[in-house]
Design a protein around this nucleic acid. Structure first.
Length: 776
RNA sequence: UGGGGCAUGGUGUAAUUGGCAACACGUCGGUUUCUGGUUCCGAAGAGUCUAGGUUCGAGACCUAGUGCCCCAUCCA
């Protein structure tokens, strides 16, 4: 799998893992996990997670565990466990012997919880749900502490053991983490770790009556299994702080890390488990495996190859932005993989009878027909029977052909694929003027498709013998919803159901298809890809996806089957909306004004910076936005140098690193920055060189002047030396040089970059620009 | 009102970590073809949410703003 890798584009998770390996984290080991709760069926959204979890492990020579997160006995069932295993396997992934259940760890989790209590990190809270909700606070107000926090360790331990022993009813009490009721992160406000649930668990039976919560169980499962990278979706970002809390405060020895990526959304599709369930329960579909469902078992019945799903997931990438992928993308990968995998056969979905007047009614001519077109390097043929009465597709005949129509019409000739050239001689109609049959004559000498006289026939159409053809059921599936984002409007998604998402028809197919096995995929030529349904004994074909049809697009562009998205202004709020927000929000600007009003020191510095140092009001405001920057700037100023230069460096570079570590933890002082700016202003180093020096100062501190020495970063301002580098770069990049001279001015930046890189950042940029412009 | 995230062609992702905004889907041409499929070639389409700033050079760094998503289940 790895040697066929195309130069694949990167993603942040891949970057993190390879950086970890490079740094020797976890001894270079990579372990991931796919952790479904066994309470429903897997859908294409899970396929993304599966491909990422298993794919990353595979790519880095690690392992991916399949783990059932069964911490809530009320919802879970073994039925789902089997379905999920089957689907993951079908998708093409193997967890080897790494099959786990959260319930495998209940005993250890319990022990660790007792440890937490002993360490004073957890307590039993007997507040009712409503009472706790009351004191928990809101997103904007701190919470208050539960009286349970005051209980002694011994008492907590005793209560917890009683919980375990079943001495309390459901909901009587709960074990909580002693975290932080004042945290801005609601997840950290003493979250429950264990609750009482007197229910039979699908694996542990009645052994337990307390069950761990997700936020407690999940990190422990990861740690206990030795997971290194715990990948999940975006909505768990707030939970990460708690995840780390659990890892740090329990006696586990490994430290798994959680990373979050965006879920998959698809146009014309809903992904919510709840809503999918509703479709099943209300009978809008036949079940979880209805081929219109985005479930893996549904997609499998629709005939989508697992390989196509994997290719699709690979194609859409991994990122943190919420987005909606166009299903056309999926359809493209389906056609792409089926193109080389599905043998070609002929089937008529909407029959129109054709009588070959000059063909012997008693004869059957068995013609050779290849299963594969010329461009697919596969062998194999079958025989198709040619008889006097045939069917062709109704849409392949036009009595009054529009321009560009090169199928059959009166007096015109077409090729019957793998058969003969035929010419339409007359049309039969019923009383309503409906065409009931066509009469044609065939050119006996054109057997297998070409006329000996070499005349060209543009049109080729497919056909099936009326007498030898097989009548089969065909399900013509279309997208379940008629709008791009059925999920957008909350619960009215049922209003958007596409009434034509399933058309059940009888079709006539060539007899070779008689014994085609369930799940075998075929291309019905000029129609689409079809799969033999695996749920009925009668031969039934499901349409997986149609072929691209550029004729349909050309001939009736207005009634296109795929509605176009109405161009919508992207994220434009209404004026009233933004007005309201503007009024409500107290911007940082206002907050700063308030700060200056309450801190006279900052206020006076601000005016001094403007008046004495000549800084812009904006710069001055930035440099007095808090005591941290301001004190730092003061110190730098005191050490001397150009106030504007220092201001620029403090406001940009210094602020950038201080944002991460804080002003107290900086490895350099204001004086150092003052020195650094002086080196720049005196042309000792280039600004690029200064950035290098600054990077080292940030990392390990040090005096700028000495660093310039030791790093050898003194600026090169000797025109001759720069000229040499310029000549070198031009010589080494003949192609770019040619392009630039041909007028691609954008390449100038490329050349500057090359020269500066060649000088390791030491060349004086203005000089480089001058010389480069002249030389080029 | 607090916190956590996100913002690049119509859509989904990239961008050597500050140096030619690229790839795929879709769209439109042409080519190939016994499938109006496939193949191949080509084109159009964004100057990176806005406004300032730093820099020789900003999609990337700084400041301020805007928009969207997530968080107050004893669900996961």
């Amino acid at each position: 799998m790895s040697n066929t890798q195309k130069p694949r584009s990167s993603n942040f998770i891949r970057d993190i893992i390879s950086a970890d390996i490079a740094a020797g984290a976890n001894d270079g080991r990579v372990a991931t996990r796919f952790p479904p709760e066994p309470n429903g069926y897997l859908h294409i959204g899970h396929a993304k997670a599966i491909c990422i979890d298993f794919g990353m492990a595979q790519e880095f020579g690690g392992q991916c565990h399949l783990r059932f997160d069964d911490t809530n006995p009320a919802k879970e069932d073994t039925e789902y466990v089997d379905g999920i295993k089957r689907d993951v396997r079908w998708l093409g992934f193997d967890w080897k012997d790494n099959l786990f259940f959260a319930s495998d760890f209940f005993e250890q989790m319990y022990e660790l919880a007792e440890g937490l209590i002993r360490d004073g990190k957890a307590y039993v809270c007997t507040l009712s749900e409503d009472e706790f909700r009351e004191i928990r606070g809101t997103v904007t107000e701190h919470g208050k502490e539960s009286p349970g926090r005051l209980r002694s360790t011994a008492e907590n331990l005793d209560l917890f053991r009683k919980m375990k022993a079943g001495e309390f009813d459901d909901g009587h009490c709960v074990l909580r983490a002693r975290a932080d009721m004042t945290s801005a992160n609601m997840k950290m406000r003493d979250p429950p770790l264990y609750r009482i649930r007197k229910q039979t668990h699908h694996r542990t039976g009645d052994k337990w009556c307390i069950y761990p919560m997700y936020d407690y169980a999940h990190p422990l499962e990861d740690a206990l299994e030795g997971i290194t990278h715990s990948l999940c979706s975006l909505e768990f970002q707030d939970n990460r702080e708690l995840y780390d809390w659990v890892i740090d405060n329990t006696a586990v020895t490994t430290k798994p890390r959680q990373y979050e990526f965006a879920r998959l959304n698809l146009t014309y599709t809903i992904m919510s488990k709840r809503k999918l369930r509703l479709l099943v329960e209300n009978g809008h579909v036949s079940g979880w495996d209805d081929p219109r469902m985005p479930t893996l078992c549904g997609m499998r019945r629709l005939g989508i190859p697992a390989q196509a799903i994997r290719a699709f997931i690979d194609r859409i990438g991994v990122a943190k932005a919420n987005s909606v992928v166009d299903v056309a993308n999926l359809e493209s990968t389906i056609r792409d993989t089926l193109n080389t995998q599905a043998p070609r056969v002929m089937a008529i979905l909407d029959p129109l009878k054709v009588i070959v007047d000059n063909f012997d009614p008693d004869e059957t001519d068995w013609l050779d027909a290849s299963y594969w077109p010329h461009d697919i390097p596969k062998e194999g043929t079958r025989k198709v029977p040619f008889t006097r009465e045939l069917y062709i597709e109704r849409s392949d005949f036009e009595e009054n052909p529009p321009k560009g129509f090169y199928r059959l019409s009166p007096g015109k000739e077409v090729r019957l694929r793998y058969g003969f050239l035929v010419k339409c001689t007359s049309v039969e109609k019923d009383d309503n003027g409906q065409i009931t049959a066509l009469h044609v004559t065939y050119d006996k000498s054109s057997r297998s498709g070409n006329a000996p006289d070499g005349r060209k026939v543009k049109g080729t159409i497919h056909w099936v013998s009326a007498t030898e053809g097989l009548r089969v059921d065909v399900n013509l599936y279309d997208r379940l919803f008629g709008v791009e984002e059925p999920d957008a409007g909350g619960d009215n998604f049922l209003d958007h159901l596409n009434p034509d998402s399933l058309k059940r028809i009888e079709a006539i197919v060539e007899p070779s298809l008689k014994d085609s096995p369930p799940e075998s995929a075929w291309q019905f030529e000029r129609n689409g890809y079809f799969v033999v349904d695996n749920s009925t004994s009668k031969l039934t074909f499901n349409r997986t996806v149609g072929l691209k049809d550029s004729w349909a697009k050309k001939s009736e562009p207005k009634t296109s089957a795929t509605p176009k998205k109405s161009p919508q202004p992207k994220s434009q709020a209404t004026t009233s909306d933004s007005d309201r927000r503007a009024r409500k929000r107290k911007g940082k600007g206002e907050l700063q004004a308030a700060l200056h009003a309450s801190d006279p020191v900052l206020a006076s510095r601000l005016s001094r910076y403007v008046e004495e140092c000549g800084l812009s009001e904006k710069d001055a405001t930035t440099l007095t936005s808090n005591r941290g920057v301001s004190d730092f700037f003061e110190a730098a100023l005191k050490a001397g140098g150009s106030p504007q230069s220092i201001a620029n460096w403090v406001a940009n570079a210094v602020q950038s690193v201080a944002k991460d570590v804080g002003y107290d933890a900086l490895r350099f002082t204001g004086e150092d920055v003052s020195d650094l700016t002086r080196l720049i202003d005196e042309n000792v180093i280039s600004s690029k060189g200064a950035k290098k020096v600054f990077a080292v100062m940030t990392e390990s501190g040090g005096n700028p002047k000495e660093l310039v020495e030791t790093l050898g970063l003194a600026q090169i301002s000797d025109p001759a030396a720069i000229q040499a580098m310029v000549d070198d770069v031009i010589a080494n990049n003949p192609q770019q040089t040619e392009q630039f001279r041909a007028g691609n001015n954008k390449l100038f930046g490329f050349f500057v970059g090359q020269v500066i890189r060649a000088s390791e950042g030491r060349a004086e940029p203005t000089l480089v620009n001058q010389i480069l412009r002249k030389t080029l």
